[in-house]
Design a protein around this nucleic acid. Structure first.
Lengths: 271, 271
DNA sequence: CGCACTTTTGAACAGTATCAACAAGTGTGG
DNA sequence: CCACACTTGTTGATACTGTTCAAAAGTGCG
């Protein structure tokens, strides 16, 4: 038992662990740093913060999957992002001192709390940490810009294709299989995220399956032709598709290859 | 002649002026602060930075109008924002140390240079300035989120309407008329920004003009019914529109009311 | 003055949304 | 344990919003 913060099933992290999760260099950080960061757990469906709630802390995903949403004047959800391991969220609360969006757990989650006061204090003590925080916020902004660009210019098929490619790369980053994974969100949520209806998402996934780019079985996705997905701009007409149905009846259902955690507390089992 | 930085037609600003332009509290700032920030001028059409160019400084618009764009693999521009007085841009360069977007002057511009190194140093010396910078970056993120939401959920008419409302409010903030102003960008650029074609933008403006919400004469826009623009979700069918053309033949062409600067160097004439 | 760019408007078409029916899976309570 | 309600996902038919292609007029600049 190396430290007190290991008690209670790892409810705390030190600065080095925080940096590692965020994928920022922790070289210059003193490993003897006393500062500890509290973890907090949420179960599937629970709300982390709501719109208008007073802001004081940022969240870093240690494990699990979430969505952040905006709610329009008539209660319709607009999905903004699907935070997962290593992502920071809550940043939109800094400006008005109130969260501008709502965050909901799509699976059981383990989050690291980063009080904004602590962040600024830390930035003053560790210049390279301050730089890293600006960098992470910049990364978020670039991500949003890419979303705007996608929504503004790409067809439905291209959006879904890029969504799958991004997810695949994200899973690879996290050390899971990039070829076989489960979606943590519904078609409706994907559609909202991509500016499409759930029917269009469903049809597009079916079409990709038909031409052998992927396999689909409910939430289970198998990537079969990553390059095609990456470069796809628009689908060939369905008349062309009808013929070439060959070797692609391999429903992914049977394969039980270990792809990603599905446990009670995602990747928290390493106690 | 109060200070050396007034020489050469106001090429420098102190910290207080910087904060004022950014609309952040400068109360705690020492007015005797020695630090000066260089200005730089760009003429219409000039490029401030390009994609991939090494990043080291942020820009704050002191006067003038710009656009920031992404360029896709085949050279198509995707407009991301239209920075104007008080806006910060270049933030997307922090993460990868290279600008992720390109900024172009739509009018003659006067920009304040904020070297990123200077920003971080300043943040350490003035905690409230550091907080303000986080706040401004958060504001940018919220703005991008609003764009994503708009592109994902609103009809073409609603997008154009909201664009006009935002512009109107922005002009009001800057002290210009919110009821009569000139667009600094082409229909094509507006369309790119809103995820529409230039034809749709043109048609929508014409339709708004027909039903009396605005007056349009090329780049000149007159706001006639702000509330209707704010709440507009979708236009009544054109068959309905045909009848009710009444008191709205007032082409804005004749009115030469002073609305905003159009000089050689926008609002730089106050020397 | 001429040429390139911008804007407007029309007509036909295409891509998605909408509406609807149904199937499969999940949880609840009798 | 099964009946029932509810959520999620698939697929089809149809309508409609916005794009594409095209033509012409207006604007501005060298």
């Amino acid at each position: 038992m190396e430290a007190g913060w290991q008690r209670q099933g790892k409810l705390w992290s030190n600065l080095k662990e925080l940096c590692d999760v965020l994928r920022i260099p922790s070289a210059a950080v003193h490993t003897d740093e006393e500062l500890l960061f509290q973890h907090v757990q949420f179960k599937t469906g629970q709300r982390i913060h709501t719109i208008g709630q007073p802001f004081d802390t940022l969240y870093i995903v240690h494990s699990g999957f979430l969505k952040t949403v905006l709610i329009d004047e008539f209660g319709n959800e607009q999905v903004l992002s699907f935070p997962m391991k290593g992502d920071l969220f809550g940043v939109d609360g800094i400006h008005t001192k109130r969260y501008a969006s709502e965050a909901v757990a799509l699976s059981n989650c383990d989050l690291i709390l980063l009080p904004f006061k602590k962040l600024t204090a830390l930035g003053r003590a560790h210049p390279e940490f301050e730089h890293a925080m600006y960098s992470v916020m910049s990364r978020e902004l670039v991500r949003e810009q890419a979303m705007v660009s996608m929504l503004g210019a790409l067809s439905a098929e291209a959006r879904v294709a890029r969504f799958l490619v991004n997810l695949s790369e994200r899973y690879a980053d996290m050390g899971y299989s990039s070829k076989l994974f489960n979606l943590r969100m519904t078609r409706h949520e994907i559609g909202s995220y991509l500016g499409l209806t759930l029917e269009t998402v469903s049809r597009t996934l079916s079409a990709f399956n038909e031409i052998g780019l992927i396999t689909v079985d409910q939430r289970s996705i198998g990537i079969k032709d990553l390059d095609a997905l990456k470069t796809l701009r628009r689908l060939p007409p369905s008349s062309t598709r009808a013929k070439q149905s060959g070797a692609k009846k391999a429903k992914a259902a049977a394969s039980k290859e270990p792809d990603q955690p599905d446990g009670e507390w995602d990747s928290l089992a390493t106690a």
